[in-house]
Design a protein around this nucleic acid. Structure first.
Lengths: 147, 147
DNA sequence: CAAGATTGACCAATCAATCTTT
DNA sequence: AAAGATTGATTGGTCAATCTTG
């Protein structure tokens, strides 16, 4: 039977713990500031990067690594509070185009300083840039191996 | 205004992506084998390590990094299917002792090969032990900085 | 009152089924 | 039939309130 080596176990447990602890910090800071969750930020950022044409739901889905229904429900909420618009799609009658609204841009801009502040206070306080870079490369190898 | 450096952003995004992608792999493999989710494994393992005396819910909670109500609901499910037992606590009338049952041990033993297989297939396929060790140390520094 | 633990009500995530267009 | 997207029903997670004992 296969048994992972101690380095593998250590990396796995630290990966699970660090991602949860950091995520909690960021989400906690957003909530404390009366702002929406990180998932909203991610979606707004992708739509803002896409500019004029907007994005099709399936494209947003790929970028956010969400299931199809997850995207559908997330977009429902964003549309519900006026941060995103749904428009019929010209080229493909099955689909739509999603576009960020002015309110959406404003919300993302309000969220960023809070988000950025936590990243600086945790990641940059913990690791010099050179080490952060090496760790990022190792994680990148994990990502490629897992899909 | 604070702005995280590019290495910080890269590490953060890889951390979020790698943890999600690897977790999906492991959860997917468990589900495909008709087994319960990883959260059950984690709880069963802690209770098995605790041996005879069992664990108080608050102690399990600390080890699993769950909120109090989260632990309560998780234990509900484990007790519901007979993998864990709740016993009144001798020293402290407010609390209980949680103990893994024989069925609980058997379930953990069935889950481990599936879990271990995915770790080997992803982590060990991606990184030599020496690099895994260095990455684990970097993540450990992140964990300490975040709490 | 603080600590350990649970619970009702609500929100979010998931599954399977569905609908439309290609 | 496959791709894009949504939806009803269920399950799981979260919040605030509650209960009991220290």
């Amino acid at each position: 039977m296969v048994t992972p080596g101690p380095e593998t176990i250590a990396l796995w447990t630290r990966l699970m713990t660090s991602s949860r602890v950091l995520l909690e910090r960021v989400e906690g800071a957003l909530k404390a500031a009366g702002l929406p969750p990180l998932s909203w930020y991610d979606a707004l950022l992708e739509l803002e990067k896409a500019e004029e044409g907007g994005l099709r739901p399936f494209a947003l889905q790929e970028r956010l690594l969400l299931p199809q229904y997850g995207t559908s429900r997330l977009v429902d909420r964003l549309v519900g509070v006026g941060l995103v618009e749904r428009r019929p799609c010209a080229e493909d009658g099955r689909g739509q185009e999603l576009a960020i609204t002015a309110e959406g841009r404003a919300m993302r801009a309000r969220m960023w300083p809070v988000y950025a502040g936590e990243l600086v206070a945790t990641v940059e306080a913990a690791l010099p840039a050179e080490e952060a870079k090496r760790a990022a490369e190792a994680l990148d190898a994990l990502i490629r191996a897992a899909r």
